[in-house]
Design a protein around this nucleic acid. Sequence first.
DNA 1: CGCAATGTTGACAATTCTCAAGGATCGTGG
DNA 2: CCACGATCCTTGAGAATTGTCAACATTGCG
Lengths: 251, 251
Amino acid sequence: MKMLGSRTTLDWPDGEERFPTSVCMDCAVRRDSLCGTLAGEDLIMLHKLGRRRRLRRGESIAWAGEESRGCANVLSGILKVSALTADGREQIVGLLYPSDFVGQPFVGSFEFTVTALGDAEICTFRKSDFEGFLSTRNGMTQALLRRTFDTLSDARKRMLLLGRQSASERIADFLLQTFERIGGYSASANGPVTFDLPLSRGAIADVLGLTIETVSRQMTKLKMAGVIALPGGRAVTILKRDALRRMADAA
Amino acid sequence: MKMLGSRTTLDWPDGEERFPTSVCMDCAVRRDSLCGTLAGEDLIMLHKLGRRRRLRRGESIAWAGEESRGCANVLSGILKVSALTADGREQIVGLLYPSDFVGQPFVGSFEFTVTALGDAEICTFRKSDFEGFLSTRNGMTQALLRRTFDTLSDARKRMLLLGRQSASERIADFLLQTFERIGGYSASANGPVTFDLPLSRGAIADVLGLTIETVSRQMTKLKMAGVIALPGGRAVTILKRDALRRMADAA
DNA sequence: CGCAATGTTGACAATTCTCAAGGATCGTGG
DNA sequence: CCACGATCCTTGAGAATTGTCAACATTGCG
């Protein structure tokens, strides 16, 4: 049974900070977030509905099984979306990076838990406010629909991974996907790259449907094979990207 | 490596039948399908964009990795949405029942295969037509968004199943879910119920991320434990629904 | 009626998990 | 700045679950 962190909702806790008026214009994620479809008047209106929240590592914003009353854009940090069995086994069913959207407007319940993996910031909206806003903006509804289809495709690809791929394939896939998402410096298209994994071994295990020990052993195996290096901490160096790609798909 | 069935696209094959004008009004799935949000003028307009297609068992309508050009409502039959590894392992990532919607308007690619498990009928739309239609109907876009969120939640729950549940839990869950979806006669709320599984053992294995043999053995085990009966063919009788429910969640 | 597809069962193998111990790393407070 | 505790990571040995291969039974369709 795992520690689940402290509890908050997507409601407005007392004393939550208001945005300074100019904040959307220089928002770090505006270009890539759902709000990126907006400009001028609309952006200002949505901005008035949003509140910025700071989350500490381990803090959760939505709880499985409850009526969900909020949604949000991720500004910074990485969050996990997870599902739990009755006896406490966890499966991470999604990772949220900056500019990602969380929540399900027009749907009553949200049966998953969203937790900050490290300190994070999100821009939250009351669900009813957001729904009202969407209702008169078909373009933004379409943008959200497009995002949701993409999220669904990701989930389905991960179903293939969870149902049909071996531990080594899962690890290879995870390393590549994580690199593609967070980058790191990449000299040549195929040269070695180094980056920090944003997840602990335990979190990686919960993403991949494995145990911590299996994750650790597979990483060691890749290191021994000269495919990756583990410089220390959560850093990884991908030495043979093509080998990793080959392992990720078939095997 | 599996047989993948014959190929068709969601384009208009020559000689495809046109709807008789009245067909939407007495469409068997209208009430529950996406079209259920429409009436009058709108329904007629959408109707003009649709074509009915008959699919034979094993026939596919969309192919992994291709530019997808259509979407559809399921009228009758059951279809599978599946993902494949490079070496031919299959994971069924979704099942489509009558009134379900398939396709991803506003998204370029659809990286999964949709195949009829038995003979089926669908009502297809050119993707561009459907997008155009949605663009001036925020209500229907919202309805599709809601559906997509529901599909996403289903996929995520199945990720928990695939990543963290044992073979017996998966089978118990599958039997209950299938019963809830297709029904069958149910005397009392907890009394025994009999119904036909719409999937072969192989398809069940591909849904649950198991092998045919494991599925078969687990079924036998449930039969021996007196939880279910297997009257023959694909029929199943759930004798102890509460026992099955207990097995489905924890262990 | 007979063939092809589907389902069951058995024996054995392989992968992954569990339990356990020890080492590395990180953050905090003295 | 170092020491300490807590957390995280690695490695090993053995167990358990599930997969593989093979044979045979059953079902359904022509």
